[in-house]
Amino acid sequence: MRPSCTLQSAVKTFGGVCAVDNVTLSFPFGMITGIIGPNGSGKSTIVHGMSGVVPFDSGIVHIGGIALPISSPYDAYQRGICRTFQEVRVFEHMTVRENLLLMLAQRTIGGSLCEHTHTTLTKKVDDALSRVGLDGKQHEYAEKLSYGQRKLLEIARILLLDASAVVLFDEPFAGLFKVSIEKVREIILELKDQGKAIVLIEHNMELIRELSDHLVVMDGGIVLAQGIPHEVLSLPRVIEAYIGK
C-alpha cells in the first residue's frame, strides 16, 4: 500500500449548514485523486480546510502516518501542503517575476530583510515561466495578464514550491484555452511523477477521467462514492447526484 496523506473525520459547518460532514479521505503520494460533485458539495471546503485557509471544526491530517493538526495556512505550508485557488489570487500590483520570487524568498524577518533577488533565484523563475509558457512576461504587472495567463502564473508558483508533498488544485483548467490546458495537464502529471499527492477538483469530466487515478464524488458534504474513475462514474447514485437522472 502506498504512503499517503489522509484526511480523517473532517467536519466543517457554516452557521447551521454542514459543508463537510465527517469526511475521511486518503490521497496517496504519486497519484492523482480527483474530487467531483455538484456546487456546494464540499469540494472546495476540503481544500480550504487542508490548506488552513478556513480550518476544519474538527478533523486531522495524517502525512506519512504522522498526525498533524492544521489550524492555519502556515501549519499547512510547514506540513508540505500547497494549493491553487478557484478564483485566481495572484498579487496584481506586483510583476510576474515578483509573484514568483515570493515563492523562493526567505520566510523569516531577518532573512528576508537581508535578502535581495539573486541571479540563482531569477534563473529558477525564468525556468518556471518558460514551463507554463509565460516567458517574456516577467516584467509585466500581473493585473495586465489575461485570466488564463493569471491561472498559469498560479501554476508556475506551485512549480517553485519544491518542498511541497501535497498539491491541491482547485479547478486549475477553468477558463484556459486548449494549449494552456495541455501545459497544465503536463505539469500535473510531472508533479505526480515526482511522487507528490495531487488533489484535483475539476468540473471537466473528460480531464478528470483521463488524469485521476482515484476518484471521489461528494454530495451534500459527504462522500457519495469513491474508487476507480470509470467504475465510480457509472454508479447510478453518482449519475443521479452529479449528472442528473
Partner: peptide, 9 residues
C-alpha cells in the same frame, strides 16, 4: 490570506 498560504506568518 493568499501570502499566508505560501508560508509567511
Amino acid at each position: 490570506d493568499a501570502i499566508q498560504v505560501f508560508g509567511y506568518r
